[in-house]
Simulated assay, not measured.
Amino acid sequence: MLLTERETDEGLLVSVCDPDILGETFENGQVSLTVEADFYDGERVDEERVVSALARASVANIVGTRAVALAVEHGFVDEATVLELDGTRHAQLVRL
Rank of each mutant, 00 (worst) to 15 (best):
R44G: 12
E73H: 09
D18L: 11
S15I: 08
Q30P: 09
A91V: 03
M1A: 01
I21G: 06
A55R: 07
V94W: 10
E7D: 13
V45Y: 06
M1F: 00
N61M: 12
L12N: 00
F26S: 04
D46A: 11
S58C: 13
L83M: 15
E5H: 14
A91H: 01
L85S: 03
G42T: 00
E27N: 04
R89C: 08
N61H: 15
N61Y: 09
V50R: 13
T81C: 10
V94C: 04
I21V: 09
E84A: 09
D38H: 00
R44S: 06
D78W: 10
V68H: 04
V82Y: 12
L70C: 11
D46M: 13
V94D: 08
L85I: 02
S15R: 11
A80D: 12
E73C: 03
V63K: 01
A91I: 02
A53W: 05
T65N: 13
D78A: 14
R95K: 08
P19M: 15
D20N: 06
A69S: 13
V72P: 12
A53L: 07
E36L: 03
R66H: 02
E84L: 11
V82A: 14
F76V: 10
T81W: 10
V45E: 06
L54N: 05
V63P: 00
F26M: 04
L3W: 02
L70S: 06
V16N: 01
A37L: 11
T4D: 01
L96R: 05
A53K: 10
G42S: 00
D41Q: 03
R6K: 15
T81E: 15
E79V: 11
Q30V: 13
V35M: 07
G75N: 08
T25K: 05
V59I: 13
L54S: 07
R66Q: 04
V68F: 09
G23Q: 13
A55M: 03
Q92C: 09
D38I: 01
R6C: 12
T81R: 15
L33K: 07
E47W: 08
D78G: 07
R95M: 12
A71F: 02
H90G: 02
R56P: 14
L2N: 03
A53S: 13
G42Y: 00
A60L: 09
H74N: 04
T4G: 02
S58P: 08
A60M: 11
S52G: 08
G42R: 00
L93W: 01
T8S: 01
A67R: 02
F26Q: 09
L85V: 02
M1E: 00
T65F: 07
N28Q: 14
V35H: 10
L22W: 14
A69R: 13
E84G: 15
E47D: 14
E48W: 09
V72W: 03
L54K: 06
L96Q: 12
R44Q: 07
F26D: 02
V31E: 15
L54Y: 15
L96K: 11
N28K: 11
